[in-house]
Every structure is written in C-alpha cells, then in structure tokens.
Amino acid sequence: MIVLTEINRAEALRYLGAGKVELNESMEALMNSCERDILKAVSPKYLYKKIPLENSGLLIGNSINEHLKNCGEAVLMCATIGAEVDKLIRSASVTDMAKAVVIDAFASAAAEQVCEKAEKLIKEENPDKYFTWRFSPGYSDYPIELQEKFLNILDAPRKIGLCVNESSLLTPTKSVTAIIGVSDKPLEKKRRGCAGCNLRKTCQYRKSGERCEV
C-alpha cells in the first residue's frame, strides 16, 4: 500500500507554470490549504504485472519497439489516486476556480508520485533486473487505445476501480497506465525526449526553454 504524506510542491508549481514566479502571501496560503485538501482526498492504488512480450499484442508502432528493444519481458502498471479527487476538483470549480486549478496540479503531482513509488517497489522486487523508463500509451506513436487492454490484463476495473471511457480517457482522471521494459542485461541509457511527444508543438515548457522532465 502506498501512502502519500506530502505532495511534491515544486512539481505542482511547475505544472501551474509558476517556475519563475514568486508566490505572494495569498498564493502561499492557497497552496497550503489545497495540499491539506488533496492529502485528505487521495486514495493511492496501483497494480502491476510482469508479462512476456512475445505475442502480447502490445508492441504496436515504432516507438514502443524501439523502447523495448532488448527486453524479453515488461511490467505493465497502472496507478490512480482515486475518484474522490475528481469530486474535490469539481466542487472547487464551482466555488473557487483558483483553488480548483491548484488542486488539479497537486493531483497530477500526486499521481506522478504514486507512479514513482510503485516503480520503486517493482524494482525492489526484481533486484537482479534492468529496466527502461515508464512508457505510456498515447506517447509518441504508441496508441492510446491500448489503455483498455492494459487495464483488462491488470483487472484494474475490478481491483482498483480504474476504467477507461470510449475516448480512451482514464477514469478516475488522475490515473496513469505505463509499460516498463525488463531485461536481464544492462540497457542502454535513454531519456525521454521531446521528439516523440505529442505536445511538442504547444508545450509551454519548451517555449520557455525548459523540459517537462516527466
């Protein structure tokens, strides 16, 4: 079980585009109250499963084949911080949109933290293996529609209440699916780049010369 005790505030601020902005007192207060609210609402859950890649039907497109080159197996994973957070965002959207935006960013940061913790656990349980970074459906040419297959293999709707709608959006919304390549031998160090990202044309980070580093 994963418990979050704090939210990565620097990350949340970056999502809000506040990398270079100095927070005034009222923003600081808003941040504090939003962090308290979100910690009360999150219910982090994750699932993973190690599967052989051969005949998995998951190697669709160039980018995933490139990514999982030299990997015989992969870990499929999914994570969510639960439906209560969506309700919190909806309710804040009615009463105070500034709050809703901040909670939304905190929630994204929280989902990312859950993934990181899950990934850490996965690696601990497979001490003699080597891993690629997390690759998600929707990234580059890897079809987002595969999310449904991921969730089915993981039995996610039943086990953690994580579903996908007909437009391949995950519900609850603050959720992630990903695949991590597993190998017995060291893998070439690669990093996530902007080239394969679907948001490269509109990305606010790129415009300001930064990287999103997710």
């Binding site: 506040a18 902005v21 005034n24 009222s26 923003m27």
Partner: peptide, 12 residues
C-alpha cells in the same frame, strides 16, 4: 510570466 495561473484566476 510575472504572475501565474491561479493568481490570474483569483483576480478574475
């Protein structure tokens, strides 16, 4: 970039 999104909304 002098202020960020929540501030813009708060003013709104």
């Amino acid at each position: 970039n002098k202020i960020f999104l929540p501030q813009l909304i708060q003013s709104a």
